[in-house]
Every structure is written in C-alpha cells, then in structure tokens.
C-alpha cells in the first residue's frame, strides 16, 4: 500500500505551482477533533508547560551582564508581539538571515554575555516558544526585505529538489499530494506556523528543524546539522509559502 502511494508520488512532477492562497491549510486543519482540542485548550495543551518555562527564563537575570530579557524588552506581550510572524529576518552583521532561535541566542551572547543555548535544548525551546506565543493568532507576514531574496530562492531550490534514496522532493508530497494518506498519516501542506510545537510522536516540544529533519530521514535523504544555513533558507521559503496563516505556537501535531 505504501509502495503504491510512493509510486504515485514519484510520478508527480518535482516542481509544481504553489498552493493557491484560498486552499492554504494549516497542519491543524488535518488533525482529529481530539488533537485540535489538545491544542486549543491552553489549560490542557502540553506545550504550555514549555511556554511557562520560557516566561520564567524571560524574567531571570543571567550571564556576565546579569540582565534578564525583561530588563531590556519589558513586557513580552507587547515587545515580542508579531516578531515570530516575520522571522527569519536579515542580520546585517552575519550577512544572512537568522531565525528566531538564532536571534534569541544573539541576545544571549551579546546582551546577556552568556553562553549560547544549544539547539533543541529545553531552555532554547522554552524562550522561543514564549516569544512565538506572543504572536499567537497573528498572520505570518514575511518581511519585504530584498536582501532575503537569494536565501529564499535557495530554500525553494532545496524544497523542489528530488533527493534521497526515494528520489522525492518536498513538493511532491506537500504541494501535490497534501490531504492524502501516507502510512496512516495525512500529508499536510508543510506550513511552519506552529513551532516550536508539541508533537505526539516526540512526546515533547521540538523545533521546525527537528521536524524538517524527520521528513528528510523519511525521504532517506541526508539531513543537516541543527542551525545549518540550509535549514534557515528552507524556513524562509516555508514562511513565504505560508504567508497569511495564523501563528499557532504552541501548536500540537501528531
């Protein structure tokens, strides 16, 4: 059954037109009512435990500078509102885009003079979830910065590339076969609007990069190191594809 679906996937062209705006659906729309309820009810959403950890970290002084995020940014519900909806953003110092995790770590190292938090660490997921939650419900609005263009195009290339032992592209599943079943899971449209999120499969919170890594492994393709520029480029492209969809952090996904 799986092999026959894979055969159908392989017949699909590697490159197809983007999903029209009116047909764009969040991963949420493909979930069962029970999983939707787990995301919607904040008193029972397991991702909220991580958001609360993030709130505590936001207010805690740390590093050689002995400053808390709150010392400079005050009330996150005000200062961080809408931020997650427009990341990755161009970082002039690095000459390339950075995602929200990298932006947070830049403040850790430069402003707090503390060590950067490792990718997928509890504390980084917590801060990132806390910051992103401040944009819950706001539409994804990628910045119109011309400096981002080449990186977004690089991300699109990775998205359209046939890769791995199965010789599949992301688009063959997510643009042309979304809504269909694959080994029990419904193929969603691959929107990055809920991250970091609580995935039932992980039984934990995880970042978009962890999710992308899962798909690359599923494709029998090689995956990148966490924080690799390829992931940031992909994220940039996925965010532009998802323009207009609401931020759902902390989302829940199967």
């Amino acid at each position: 059954m799986l092999l026959s679906l894979l055969a159908v996937l392989l017949l699909a062209p590697a490159h197809a037109a983007e999903i029209p705006q009116a047909e764009k659906k969040s991963g949420y729309d493909f979930m069962t009512p029970e999983t939707k309820a787990m995301q919607d009810e904040l008193t029972s959403n397991p991702g909220m435990l991580t958001v609360l950890d993030g709130e505590a970290l936001w207010n805690r002084k740390t590093g050689a500078a002995n400053r808390a995020c709150a010392d400079c940014h005050q009330d996150a519900s005000n200062s961080m509102k809408g931020v997650a909806a427009r990341y990755p953003a161009f970082d002039a110092a690095r000459g390339r885009p950075v995602n929200l995790d990298q932006r947070i770590n830049a403040c850790r190292t430069e402003r707090q003079q503390a060590t950067p938090l490792p990718p997928e660490s509890k504390d980084l997921l917590a801060l990132s979830a806390y910051v992103a939650t401040q944009s819950r419900g706001m539409p994804i609005a990628p910045p119109d910065d011309p400096r981002l263009k080449p990186f977004r195009e690089a991300g699109e290339k990775i998205y359209e590339l046939r890769q791995g032992q199965l010789n599949l592209s992301c688009g063959q599943c997510h643009d042309q076969n979304w809504g269909k079943k694959l080994a029990g899971a419904t193929i969603p449209q691959a929107h990055p609007n809920g991250y970091p999120l609580y995935r039932l499969e992980w039984q934990a919170m995880g970042s978009l990069q962890r999710r992308l890594r899962n798909c690359l492994i599923g494709m029998r393709a090689e995956h990148y190191e966490f924080g690799a520029p390829e992931y940031i480029d992909l994220e940039l492209y996925l965010m532009s594809r998802a323009r207009g969809l609401p931020i759902e952090t902390p989302a829940v996904r199967p």
Partner: peptide
C-alpha cells in the same frame, strides 16, 4: 535544480530506517 547539494552537506549521523512507516 541540477546541482546535487549532497557534497555540501554536513551530516553527523546517516540513518536509514527500514520501511517508510518505521515503527518508532
């Protein structure tokens, strides 16, 4: 589209799972 980016990739652990629905 034609360039294979594999050569640029840093990958720590290559793991291939048997069966697309590997039973984690």
């Amino acid at each position: 589209m034609m360039t294979d980016p594999t050569s640029q990739r840093r990958t720590s652990r290559r793991r291939f799972i048997a069966g697309a629905g590997a039973l984690s």
